[in-house]
Amino acid sequence: MTQLPQSTDRKMGLVIDLDTCVGCHACVISCKGWNTENYGAPLSDQDAYGADPSGTFLNRVHSYEVQPAEGHAQLIHFPKSCLHCEDAPCVTVCPTGASYKRVEDGIVLVNESDCIGCGLCAWSCPYGARELDQAEGVMKKCTLCVDRIYNENLPEVDRVPSCVRTCPAGARHFGDLGDPDSDVSKLVAERDGMDLMPEMGTKPVNKYLPPRPKDQIEDQIDILAPLLAPVAEEPGGFIGWLDKTLEKF
């Protein structure tokens, strides 16, 4: 089953707003919490209280500095999890069929009981979205919270990924990117949502909304300057202006 489906009924995925993400890591830990307790093996940690702690995470938040040709450097927080690619190389390389892309919603999953932990899928993923759990020896990846989004034991509002539900800034959006009328698709259209490494040909479903232009305020001074025309040059004149203005009330 490591062949990719010809097409999927829906393209469920995330839209991440780089203009809004404050880099708080809430999504990272919420994801760790949910996925440790739910689908598949727990996300383990090695040397948890020691010199070299490391563990399995399905979502991580990077940060980058961008130095424009002119003006101040900018800092951009950058969450990254599986992008549930349409042409997911991680699926086709998998020798066991453990990795597959679901026909109904396009979610890329690992069937842990088949996985041999060869790591090849992680090698093939350009985005670093897969991590081999050191305790369980199987490949872990973002499940798009497949055990939440249809879960009838959860109230309907909560049938969204854990990371989306928790994001305090509302920088993460979830929906069907295959449906041009969905909120997420509209957001992508409005804000010029982009693909990561389009040249890899993976056709990611997840999209990123680029940061809005920054540090523009001084350029607007021409429009703004009239607002600052002095009412008086001297304190005395100011009191005169005050009297006149108060009369109008």
């Binding site: 563990g55 990077h62 500095e65 130095q67 040709a69 670093g128 081999l132 990561l196 389009p198 680029p210």
Partner: peptide, 30 residues
């Protein structure tokens, strides 16, 4: 890094803080 982050058009991109101060599977493997 420009295409990886989609930020390349905006200027030169530099990795700042990593997502964690320790290591992880990806760093060990790749």
């Amino acid at each position: 890094l420009g295409t990886a982050t989609g930020l390349g058009q905006r200027g030169s991109v530099r990795a700042f803080e990593p997502p964690h101060t320790g290591t992880n599977y990806l760093l060990r493997e790749f």
